[in-house]
Computed example of a mutant assay.
Amino acid sequence: MENAVERVKIWFRFTPREGWFPQDTEGLWAAKVGDDTACVRNVAFLQNGVAEGDVVRYRTDSDGLHWAVGRVSSAGNCTIRVVPVPTGPLGRSPQAVHQRLSAFGLGGEVFSDDFPMVAFNVPAGADFTGIKTLLNRGQDEEWWHYEVGCGTDAWWNA
């Protein structure tokens, strides 16, 4: 089990997207693996290009904040974000989103009660084809909107 000394928050900077959240940073929990590297331990709601299990390099600023400067290695996992359509059959329920995707055993986190976006970690060995088929069906049938925050070649080629 990791101790508190090894767990750090890594901060990411990005350009806010128009019509999206105004934030330009996101902090993700990570486990230190070296003097300036850490393994991401949760799923990103806003930052693109990083997934749970990826190792990132960081620099520590004068305030003690650890800022990501690049990805060192990929775990092969993907990040998928799903937002239920409030007027659709799932309503605003993140639990209903989890239920629809439960057959794939994906771990996910809910952004907030006000904005029930679910960010899922899709493990490298998951059924990418089946997940993509269901995500597209759900979007076509207005259950949800989704985006891929971090996809691998295996994801895009499935």
Rank of each mutant, 00 (worst) to 15 (best):
M1W: 09
E2W: 04
N3P: 03
V5K: 07
V5P: 00
V5A: 11
V5F: 09
E6D: 15
I10G: 01
W11F: 13
W11Q: 10
F12C: 05
T15Y: 11
E18N: 12
G19F: 05
W20D: 14
P22M: 07
P22D: 10
Q23D: 15
D24H: 15
E26L: 02
G27A: 14
A30H: 10
A31H: 07
V33C: 13
D35R: 12
T37N: 09
V40H: 04
R41K: 09
R41F: 01
R41Y: 06
N42P: 04
N42Y: 01
V43S: 06
A44Y: 07
A44I: 03
F45I: 00
L46E: 01
L46Y: 13
L46T: 02
G49T: 09
V50A: 01
V50D: 01
G53Q: 04
D54G: 08
D54H: 07
V56F: 11
Y58N: 05
R59Q: 14
R59G: 06
T60M: 13
T60W: 05
D61F: 04
D61G: 07
D63W: 09
D63Y: 14
L65E: 08
L65Y: 14
L65W: 14
L65S: 06
H66D: 08
H66L: 08
W67V: 03
W67P: 02
W67I: 02
A68Y: 04
V69F: 10
V69E: 14
G70Y: 06
R71W: 07
R71V: 12
V72T: 13
V72R: 12
S73L: 01
A75H: 05
C78H: 01
T79K: 05
I80A: 12
R81M: 11
V82P: 05
V83N: 12
T87V: 06
T87I: 01
T87H: 11
S93D: 08
P94A: 07
P94M: 03
H98N: 13
Q99R: 15
R100W: 05
R100I: 00
L101A: 01
L101D: 00
S102F: 02
G105E: 05
G105P: 12
G105C: 10
G107K: 09
G107L: 05
G107W: 01
G108V: 06
F111M: 12
D113E: 15
D114R: 14
F115A: 05
V118R: 00
V122A: 10
V122T: 03
P123S: 04
A124D: 15
G125P: 09
G125V: 03
G125T: 12
A126F: 03
A126Q: 10
A126H: 12
A126K: 02
A126M: 06
F128Y: 13
T129K: 13
T129A: 15
T129P: 02
I131H: 03
N136A: 10
N136K: 12
R137S: 13
R137N: 07
Q139C: 08
D140L: 09
E141S: 12
W144N: 07
H145P: 00
Y146F: 14
Y146H: 10
E147P: 00
D153E: 15
A154N: 09
W155S: 04
N157E: 15
A158K: 00
